[in-house]
């Protein structure tokens, strides 16, 4: 286990003109760690996720990532080509809306195989068996392999998105409300899947959610955001059981009890 953080943000800010997206974020993510970012709508969760995954450009601040080869790189200094290679070999991104993360008119197998082909796989049989293997792991049966995701249910699409991202064995996956819009039983299966992937592969995850139950189930640490700033960060149980910040207290007490 390496003690240098996998991803490290210092003074990360994003302003949209005069408005604040997020402000002065200091954050470390370690290998094998699941970090949940929670907060209400408009609190800057998605902006922060966008910044950390280099999809947005920060206004100020720095972001360092420790690559598989042990080298730490400043992400804003990477060339576009290096950034893309990183995105498809070491990282994954799960969108809330599966239609943004999948090629909807390409078969499930093709969706999973795309990353393999992008990193140079040129043997159809191997690509197919690897894709099939990953589809099985996310519980998509082999006879749906050649169907387009347009014919899939919401839960299946999310699982396909996970397979598509996991096939190149990334070290870090960003998730933006992956369970949004799914009914609770489908949510539960998806959360189970993500938990088992973390346990099996030692994957690190940054997950944005407004659902505290999801954060509790999945994450080791929770960061609570409000108005673009992290108001509280700590171990998941600690934050949820003994919130220190008044806003976190309000957030935790607003959860409906069944």
């Amino acid at each position: 286990m390496n003690h240098v953080p996998l991803l490290s943000a210092r003074g990360l800010s994003k302003r949209y003109g005069a408005r604040i997206g997020c402000e002065e974020i200091d954050l470390d993510l370690h290998e094998g760690e699941v970090l949940a970012i929670v907060g209400e709508s408009g609190s800057g969760k998605s902006t922060l996720l966008g910044l950390m995954s280099t999809q947005l450009e920060s206004t100020t601040g720095s972001l360092a990532y420790r690559r598989r080869d042990g080298l730490s790189v400043e992400l804003d200094k990477l060339s576009e080509m290096e950034r893309r290679i990183l995105l498809r070999t070491e990282w994954g991104f799960i969108q809330q809306d599966a239609r943004l993360g999948l090629r909807m008119n390409v078969s499930a197998g093709g969706n999973v195989g795309e990353r393999l082909m992008a990193v140079g796989w040129r043997h159809y049989g191997q690509i197919r068996s690897e894709a099939q293997d990953w589809l099985a792991r996310v519980e998509i049966s082999a006879d749906r392999m050649d169907d387009a995701p347009t014919t899939f249910s919401g839960g299946m699409r999310q699982r396909l998105q996970i397979a598509r991202n996991m096939v190149t064995k990334p070290r870090l996956v960003f998730m933006d409300e992956p369970t949004g819009g799914l009914d609770v039983s489908v949510q539960a299966r998806l959360l189970d899947l993500i938990r088992s992937l973390v346990a099996l592969t030692g994957l690190s995850i940054v997950i944005v959610t407004h659902d505290l139950a999801v954060a509790r189930l999945l994450s080791h640490r929770i960061a609570v955001m409000r108005q673009g700033r992290i108001v509280e960060i700590g171990l998941a149980d600690q934050v949820l059981e003994d919130p220190q910040d008044p806003y976190t207290q309000l957030l935790v007490s607003s959860v409906l009890q069944v």
Binding site: E114, M117, A118, I127
Partner: peptide, 11 residues
């Protein structure tokens, strides 16, 4: 970035 070209042939 031509990975997607092979997706067409894969399909």
């Amino acid at each position: 970035d031509y990975g997607v070209m092979h997706v067409k042939l894969y399909e």
